[in-house]
Computed example of a mutant assay.
Amino acid sequence: MGLRKKGSKNPPVLSHEFILQNHADMVSCVGMFFVLGLMFEGTAEVSIVFLTLQHGAPVPAGEAAAAGVRTLYHYGVKDLATVFFYTLVAIIVHSTLQDCVLDKIGRRMQFTKARQSKLNESGQLSVFYVVSCVWGTFILVSENCLADPTLLWRAPSHHLMTFQMKFFYISQLAYWFHSFPELYFQKIKKQDIPGQLIYIGLHLFHISGAYLLYLNHLGLLLLVLHYFVELLSHLCGLFYFSDENYQKGVSLWALVFISGRLVTLIVSIVTVGFHLAGSDSQTRNTTDTLTGNVNVLAAKIAVLSSSCSIQVYITWTLITVRVQRWVEDSTLQASNVKKKRSTSKGKSRKRTENGMETSNRVDSPPKRKEKSL
């Protein structure tokens, strides 16, 4: 059994290559400091802020028996520490999936760097979308949101969240925050970084907006719809990436994509419309930041306009991209037809010329060699 040979040159400590190769181990060491802090009495209180959910509020006995929970949560400044710790966890999970699954597939299939980069992006996001869709659907079912759609626009009087709802939003924020350092760890090209920053920023903006405005059920439903459409997008991309004969699957995804955006628009308009019509907070002019009440007319209009504008922007971007590809494909096909015609004409000319030459050689009598005396 042969041993694996180490590289002839090890990168210097804290150099660019060293950080790229060992960033998961370095992040694991940072995370272990918070875990080990639980073992000591002096640092346990600080470590708990990073590891567990904060800003819990006890529920009265009657409401706790009806809801089946004893503690509900609201948001606060300490959530930033929790998001930071789970951002470290997301970096570790990302690196583990990259090393144990995606890199092995790339080596076995002998992908080029461009194909390996595409596999890494689609593979990581596909796993995240699958987990988020299953987890989000479980929360919607367990909190009777699908059975009682009025929960989407009927805001609770206490403005509190369950444990699983808050942990879901904390995990979502942590994942998208971890995407910023991953741009450096994955060696993303400079020309692709602005688009990636916009993509990540839009997710953080809408997730944090639903979290801060206590639109938890609405935000969760829209996230599940959005992630399901994006999951189909990456799966179709992977199939087309492996075999270009899956063009019909890509076209089917475009229809599903537009349908998902339309459903998202309808849900947003219906939810905010009923919320505006049935809320008694329309007469309030300012938000009560002490009680966390942001259920006012201005906030609802901002949510509706933001949701509608981003869906229209995404749909318009898809349509323009599809039209550009269609024009490029049509021009490419036209150029290929012209090339085939020109090559066929050239071959026919050569054939006629060769025919004339052979006929001349046949008609002309062969030359006899003179015998030497």
Score class of each variant (00 low, 15 high):
Lys345Glu: 08
Arg115His: 14
Ser268Leu: 14
Leu304Cys: 12
Val321Thr: 13
Val337Tyr: 01
Thr320Asp: 09
Trp326Val: 02
Val362Cys: 11
Asp363Ile: 13
Gly136Gln: 02
His234Arg: 07
Ser279Phe: 10
Leu3Trp: 07
His74Thr: 14
Ser305His: 04
Leu238Gly: 02
Phe228Val: 06
Thr331Pro: 00
Gln21His: 12
Cys145Pro: 02
Asp288His: 10
Val327Arg: 04
Gly237His: 06
Phe18Trp: 08
Ser132Val: 09
Val13Leu: 10
Arg261Phe: 04
Ala64Lys: 01
Ser28Val: 04
Lys6Gly: 13
His217Cys: 06
Ser348Asn: 12
Asn22Glu: 05
Val224Leu: 14
Thr317Leu: 15
Ala155Trp: 05
Tyr175Asp: 02
Asp288Ile: 05
Arg70Trp: 10
Met161Lys: 06
His203Thr: 03
Val69Ser: 01
Asn245Tyr: 02
Asp103Val: 11
Gln282Gly: 13
Pro149Trp: 14
Cys29Val: 06
Ala67Gly: 03
His55Asn: 13
Ile139Met: 03
Ala155Glu: 15
Phe34Ser: 12
Thr162Arg: 14
Leu235His: 00
Ser171Pro: 01
Tyr75Ala: 13
Asp192Gln: 06
Val83Ala: 06
Ile105Glu: 06
Leu215Ala: 13
Lys104Glu: 06
Asp243Phe: 10
Leu332Val: 05
Phe163Cys: 02
Phe84Leu: 12
Glu182Gly: 01
Ala174Asp: 03
His217Met: 06
Leu225Phe: 15
His178Ala: 09
Leu80Asn: 12
Phe50His: 04
Ala298Cys: 05
Arg341Val: 05
Arg351Lys: 14
Glu244Ser: 13
Arg325His: 14
Met1Gly: 15
Lys300Glu: 15
Asp288Cys: 15
Phe185Gln: 12
Asn10Asp: 07
Arg261Trp: 04
Ala174Trp: 03
Val256Tyr: 01
Thr320Glu: 10
Lys339Phe: 03
His159Glu: 02
Ser342Phe: 02
Gln98Gly: 05
Tyr240Ile: 12
Leu265Glu: 13
Leu222Trp: 01
Thr150Glu: 11
Tyr75Gly: 01
Ala66Leu: 14
Phe128Arg: 10
Tyr313Asn: 07
Leu238Pro: 05
Ile266Glu: 08
Cys100Val: 05
Leu53Ser: 03
Met161His: 00
Leu119Cys: 05
Leu238Thr: 04
Phe138Ser: 15
Asn22Thr: 07
Val294Phe: 13
His94Gly: 05
Gly56Tyr: 12
Gly123Met: 08
Thr137His: 03
Gly31Tyr: 05
Glu244Gln: 13
Thr112Ile: 04
Arg284Asp: 12
Ile139Arg: 11
Thr43Val: 11
Phe228Gln: 06
Pro365Met: 09
Phe228Pro: 00
Ala65Glu: 11
